[in-house]
Design a protein around this nucleic acid. Structure first.
Lengths: 217, 217
DNA sequence: CCCCAAATACAGAGATTTCCTGATACACTT
DNA sequence: AAGTGTATCAGGAAATCTCTGTATTTGGGG
């Protein structure tokens, strides 16, 4: 039986490339495409793939949050992360979220198939570049300073923070999440209180530093 | 004779996807790969492709600068831009640099082949999403170059943008510059209009990209 | 099993900001 | 002298933010 794979990336061309790459393998098949984290979660529920190949930076809901939920709610499905960042905090967040692999976009060809095979075998695969970067961190201590958003903010708060830092207004965010404006307001208020930040500009910088949003707009 | 194409993108998986897509066409062939703008220029000199498919954001030298130089120095080679941005100013900059096509990464499949064919026929192809965004600019009887020239911020506007992107409120900014709140309001509106940005989050990202503020807070 | 703390969702009301149309003064160009 | 762009400010309506509370749910400890 072949390995069933779901792709999640907002760039169609990346999904296309991944699909080409994977379908060269006789024992693997792509069963679905998602363009953001929310869609990835829904399709994972629906299709129950063996592996999700997930981009980190996506609009609406990013890959970190989506990975967290998938690993929690559908633990049979493994997640492999596709990223262009090799920042330490990113990798740590993803490992905490329970990913089975971390691959850099600049070096997919060599790593993807191996990572998928490792994932279904319950192993963790990291790009060689990543392991080098992480090495001394593991040596020093396994628990890293937990003042990152993943530690302080709740999942819902991170979700709202991403929307805010992507330029969504309160109203747009409320519509997007199907809750009232008042709810978004109090969630944002909660975020600001927790972080001791009291304006959107600094909130955006925080989100960028935490990898919750990107510098693109 | 087949159309000879050079790919320029720092993500291997994107190049792979583009290559798959293009090689489905009988009359097109990929003659080379570049991982940044500088390499794209060198390979264009060496290989003399008919078309370069160029990503905008690449390390070392970005796609905008590389496009400018290729169009100037090797005008026989057409350039098609691959971007995830759909901001007006971005598109205008690229059109001024002489691109033959502007395609969004979220929608490559439908557009790429058509754009390549348009390029070799000396036509310009824009993603439908792009044309929609550009439409009202053309309708408002303002020429592109006029808008583009006015997009440069005045010193005062940059000063106000800095304050905003540093988290100052309208009132604080007014106090800081010893002017009325109304003045800050209209200056900010002027900034937002020029940049086609309509929220503080994206304004902050712009300011960071422009070096007007830092990521610290 | 119950209770508590945290997370999530929502409301009212006043303060603040945004959004729109104008308007004035000044410098610089043509 | 006329035109253009910059910088300044006003008024008023609409939207948002801020603050104070409250209800419901959920996930552990005791």
């Amino acid at each position: 039986m072949s390995i069933r794979i779901l792709l999640a990336d907002d760039h169609e061309i990346v999904r296309y490339g991944l699909r080409c790459l994977i379908e060269e393998q006789p024992d693997m098949e792509v069963v679905g495409d998602a363009v953001n984290g929310r869609m990835a979660i829904n399709l994972t529920y629906e299709l129950r793939p063996d592996v999700v190949v997930m981009d980190i930076s996506m609009p609406d809901m990013n890959g970190i949050e989506a990975t967290r939920r998938i690993r929690k709610e559908i633990p049979d499905t493994k997640v492999i992360v596709l990223s262009m960042h090799h920042k330490r905090q990113f990798v740590i967040d993803m490992l905490k979220a329970g990913v089975s692999g971390y691959i850099l976009k600049t070096k997919v060809h060599d790593d993807l198939i191996r990572a998928i095979k490792a994932a279904v075998a319950n192993e963790v695969y990291l790009s060689s570049k990543i392991t080098g970067i992480m090495a001394h961190d593991f040596a020093s201590s396994m628990s890293i300073s937990d003042k990152s958003a993943s530690a302080v903010l709740t999942p819902r708060e991170r979700e709202v923070l991403q929307l805010i830092s992507e330029g969504k207004s309160t109203k747009e965010s409320a519509l997007h999440l199907n809750v009232s404006i008042k709810t978004i307001e109090s969630t944002r208020r909660q975020i600001m209180q927790k972080l001791d930040i009291h304006n959107v500009a600094d909130l955006t910088k925080y989100a960028i530093n935490e990898g919750i949003t990107s510098l693109d707009f």
